[in-house]
């Protein structure tokens, strides 16, 4: 950088009409453009190398098995929908039932956890510092515990209350586990930024707590709700070990466990594999593209609170 600033000083010393000046400026501008385009090209090259696996899978979903093997990097030619159609026509209905089950588990978890966590967080924020500290410390534990550590006791618990190998069992363990910790921490952190006066004013007007929470607090914490919804939705959707063990093989499968259990055996048929992958990944990827701003914003606020 010092090489740039020095000629600048030198130029400034010259009279205004010095022809050297415009020449120097032109060459500097040229150097700047060259550097910027070199940077742009380098950035594209690195980015494209990084996403090659995604390209292989997406383009492979529309290629023949033969073309995948002979020209993995080429664009689909001939373009074929056979892999997609084949994935949708599997006799085990892997895609349809897997997506349906994943949607069910994800939506049910979110519908339960969002009001539960936001109301609890509001309630915690209103407690005396000692109680608040104890509860937050207990919830902090859930942010760190690896899911494998608590999995077997959860399975035993579900067995004893008659919810083993069931969707309600899986959903309950999602709602009560580490995800709740994440949601509570996010909401409690966000509630600190909500002005107290609004809540106090409603209280003076005689509104009940339930009403204050639902009509005043919930709209105010909407950004936190977006973050909780996006992240927990993604995590629950992508979850693998919990549905694998808690649901077991007999109760149908979510999309992740379904792929693991039924595609494993045919995985050298890349055309079919990529067709299945494409359909399985399309919902989270489109969701990410649509909510990208909230996604990245939420990641930062979520991560800094966690």
């Amino acid at each position: 950088m010092s090489t740039i600033t020095q000629p600048e000083k030198a130029v400034r010393a010259h009279p205004v009409d010095d022809p050297n000046r415009s020449a120097a400026r032109r060459s500097r501008a040229r150097a700047g453009i060259a550097r910027r385009s070199a940077h742009l090209i380098a950035a594209w090259v690195v980015t494209l190398i990084f996403v090659i696996p995604i390209y292989l899978a997406v383009s492979g979903a529309f290629k023949t098995q033969e073309q995948i093997l002979t020209e993995p990097l080429a664009l689909p030619s001939p373009f074929t929908l056979d892999n997609i159609v084949g994935a949708l026509q599997r006799p085990d209905h892997l895609i349809q039932s897997g997506l349906l089950n994943s949607i069910l588990v994800t939506v049910a978890t979110l519908v339960l956890i969002i009001p539960l966590a936001s109301a609890t967080s509001f309630w915690i924020s209103e407690q005396r510092p000692v109680i608040r500290g104890v509860l937050l410390a207990a919830f902090a534990l859930g942010l760190m515990v690896p899911p494998q550590v608590v999995l077997q006791p959860i399975v035993s618990l579900l067995q004893s209350i008659g919810l083993a190998n069931s969707y309600p069992g899986l959903i309950l363990s999602n709602v009560g586990g580490g995800y709740l910790s994440f949601a509570v921490f996010l909401y409690v952190g966000f509630l600190r930024t909500v002005p107290r006066e609004v809540v106090e004013a409603a209280r003076v007007d005689g509104a009940g707590e339930l009403r204050i929470w639902w009509t005043i607090v919930m709209p105010l914490v909407r950004p936190a709700t977006a973050t909780v919804g996006i992240f927990l939705g993604l995590w629950v959707w992508n979850d693998f070990l919990n549905p694998l063990i808690i649901l077991g093989p007999l109760q149908g499968q979510t999309i992740t466990t379904g792929i693991y259990q039924s595609v494993g055996t045919i995985s050298t048929d890349y055309a079919q594999l990529f067709g299945v992958m494409f359909l399985a990944a399309i919902i989270p990827v489109v969701g990410y593209l649509v909510t990208q701003r909230e996604f990245i914003h939420g990641l930062m606020s979520g991560a800094s609170k966690g």
Partner: peptide, 19 residues
């Protein structure tokens, strides 16, 4: 583009890389 791997499930990522 660079952020996409993070939204895929580990199962899908592993299947793609296995191929």
């Amino acid at each position: 583009l660079v952020f996409i791997p993070q939204v895929l499930s580990g199962v899908i990522v592993a299947f793609i890389w296995r191929s």
